[in-house]
Write a protein that binds this DNA or RNA. Structure first.
Length: 385
RNA sequence: GCUGGAAUCGUCUAGUGGCAAUGACAAGAGACUGUAAAUCUCUCGGCUUCGGCCUUCGUAGGUUCGAGUCCUACUUCCAGCA
């Protein structure tokens, strides 16, 4: 069903917003982190385990579900909620990012009509258009559909970006025209790289089309530096309507959530908590200064030998199922043995970590002390392990 | 006791005259931002002023410009025969 957004308040000193997503009789506060379940599952987690992390919206992916099992299977199953047994809100990405990531360094042909590219599974030639993407999302029956956009690489130059955002706006309009699911919200995507005028133009044109919410895209690509990301946000949010959700696509490093919220972003999604988990990494509170490039998220690799005899939780102050019940030594052991449960425990911790970070940010906004919160977060070098 | 066969980096393994020596696993570390990712990359005898140097393929000799590779003896293990 459609989601509604209400702004509760804005932080006194920053652009940080406290709001809520209304979903039937349920309400979820923002800022919010959305776990990613690309193939209609948050990798290594059951819906109950995801739910225990207290998320709001979760993500799934148009491209992947189009390829497997096919949108008709999902539709016949009764829609995505029924199919994957997730009864909270679901947002589907449009497949725009897959055109960028799957066809990286490979043949892809972006035309006005749509994008020709190759399936990574079968090698089959695929053709995805704005209409096709919306049509698939209509059938998947997610609660929020995303417009089909071009997600240009960080290396794209000004002239290319200019042509690209113009086309993305035309695609957004075409997608909106065929959008036919009355129970589904539809969001537009602002692009434009790190350029102020392009972001502004993209924002104004996209907003003129009147979507249910807006997102900032093209900021979490490889090679993107944080300064460019923050600029892209700053150049976009001032033009975005106050009464609609603002979604920063693909961003999920803790420090980036803080910086994004400060600049007026409401919701985030990222694969990193679950991917890092499968690779043995746990997010821990604090940041490490990476020099000129700025701050980097702090994390520990549980596969490291130093945790073999560490019988303390990953974070003593964390309320997640992993930290409440298991030690680093145990997770270390599981990861060494390639036991799936290790990835499950770390996924739970990492997702809960980001959701807790959002909870803390909401409290800070509520109390008008977001600047202080950010300050203490960026200065936090305390090692909790 | 006799006759064959075999001994290589923590483990298994490639190697039949130019070798610090193949691959896998194990081990040590790193990367990961709208998931082609439970993946990928690097290291993995010692020392190094990063040019190299030294010591290594059961042990001891030998042949050779050069031996993990060929020869002899020994040690240990495996198989068959007694």
């Amino acid at each position: 069903m459609k989601v509604k957004y209400e702004l509760i308040k804005t932080d006194k000193n920053t652009g940080a917003r406290l709001g809520k997503v209304i979903y039937g009789d349920k309400e979820y506060e923002t800022p919010m982190f959305m776990p990613v379940g690309t193939q209609a599952t948050v990798k290594t987690l059951s819906p109950e385990q995801v739910l225990a992390c207290h998320p709001g919206i979760i993500l799934s992916n148009t491209y992947h579900l189009w390829q497997r099992p096919g949108e008709d299977v999902v539709a016949e199953a009764g829609g995505l909620h029924q199919f994957m047994n997730w009864h909270g809100p679901i947002l589907t990405d449009s497949g725009g990012y897959q055109v960028f990531s799957l066809a990286r360094n490979k043949k892809k042909d972006i035309t006005e009509e749509g994008v020709h590219f190759k399936s990574e599974l079968s090698g089959a030639n695929l053709f995805l258009t704005p209409e096709k993407s919306i049509e698939i999302q209509n059938k998947l029956d997610s609660d929020i559909a995303m417009s089909f956009d071009e997600c240009p690489p960080a290396t794209a130059d000004y002239q290319y970006l200019k042509r690209s955002i113009e086309r993305t706006v035309r695609w957004a309009e075409r997608g909106k025209k065929v959008h036919a699911n009355p129970n589904q919200s539809l969001f537009g995507i602002i692009q434009g790289g790190p350029y102020e005028d392009l972001r502004r133009w993209s924002a104004e044109q996209t907003i003129a089309l009147d979507f249910d919410g807006y997102s900032i895209g093209g900021v979490a690509n490889d090679d993107e530096c944080k300064d460019d990301m923050y600029k892209a946000i700053e150049y976009s949010t001032p033009f975005m309507p106050k009464d609609k959700l603002r979604y920063l696509m693909g961003v999920g490093e803790p420090v980036d959530l803080v910086e994004g919220v400060m600049r007026g972003v409401d919701i985030f999604d990222c694969v990193s908590p679950t991917r890092l988990a499968r690779h043995g990494n746990a997010l821990i509170y604090g940041v490490k200064n990476a020099g000129i490039a700025g701050y980097k998220e702090k994390r520990i690799n549980l596969k490291n030998a130093r945790f073999k005899y560490d019988f303390t939780p990953i974070e003593g102050s964390c309320d997640c199922y992993c930290c409440q019940n298991y030690t680093k030594a145990y997770v270390h052991h599981l990861m060494r043995c390639d036991e799936t449960f290790g990835a499950t425990l770390l996924s739970i911790h990492n997702i809960r970590f980001l959701i807790r970070l959002c909870e803390k940010m909401r409290e800070a906004i509520r109390e008008d002390c977001f600047l202080e919160f950010r300050e203490s977060f960026l200065n936090c070098t305390k090692n909790t392990h």
